[in-house]
Amino acid sequence: MAALTAVPLLAILGEVLLRGYHQLSWAFFTEPTPTAYKAMKAIEAGEPIPGGIANGIVGTMIMLGMAVIVAVPLGILCGAFLAENSKNRFAQFVSYLTDLLQGTPSVIIGIITYIWVVVPMKGYSAIAGSVALCIMMVPLIVRSTEETLKILPASLKEAGLALGGNKARVMMRVQLPAAFGGIFTGILLAVSRVIGETAPLMFTALGCSLIRFSVDKPISAVPLLIWEFFNDPNLQELIWGASLFLLLFVLALNLTAKYLAKKWNQ
């Protein structure tokens, strides 16, 4: 029975690998998406489709980076507050809201970000995309921070306080460093969870066929590209290379997270 649960994952991995591996080349990671016309020409000539997904990779990294910069401190602060005040009514309420936010469908987060950010800024942008990703990451980081802090031995905190430290200093210098492994694992899992999100980016980042570094203009992302390739008969060949890249990236993040969690538990 247990083996059955592994079947879908292996099947997906096998399929994507078989269809996608021959597209992976240096150019695939360094060149932007080709136009449909160029792709059509290449297909007619029987050549491989030129270009790659560099615009998507750059966009994904920029938006993830901005989301992480905001979500990590916010999530850790909130998680620390919840762990320290688990009996407080307000904290219990916030904790409940965190659960709700975690369960909110990503398409709704997308449309809300559209109203909150895209409309006032009068345009799609990397900023809007990162806001949507950030909203999705915060509850995940809050939870992992809270859970990790709660399983630390109470003696650690007491030892810190017994030396005369105030709560904030003991949190910053003793508890959070001791919980670093668990929190970092949580951050990696949060990143791997949102990196493949497509729906919220459709409402916010929109997409772009150029490699762009500006944060106030529409920008591409790897999952957005997969959707675009699917909708263009000339580009469909590129779906698998992009999917393989995304899959391997998430897999690598998960393995790193698992490795760190194990190392930290020792």
Binding site: P153, S155, L156, E158, A159, A162, L163, R173, P177, A178
Partner: peptide
């Protein structure tokens, strides 16, 4: 203020691990 003047050693050795 009290804890700065009254030290404590616990049952299980608890050096700060980091």
């Amino acid at each position: 203020d009290v804890r700065r003047r009254v030290g404590m050693v616990f049952q299980r050795p608890a050096p700060f691990p980091t």
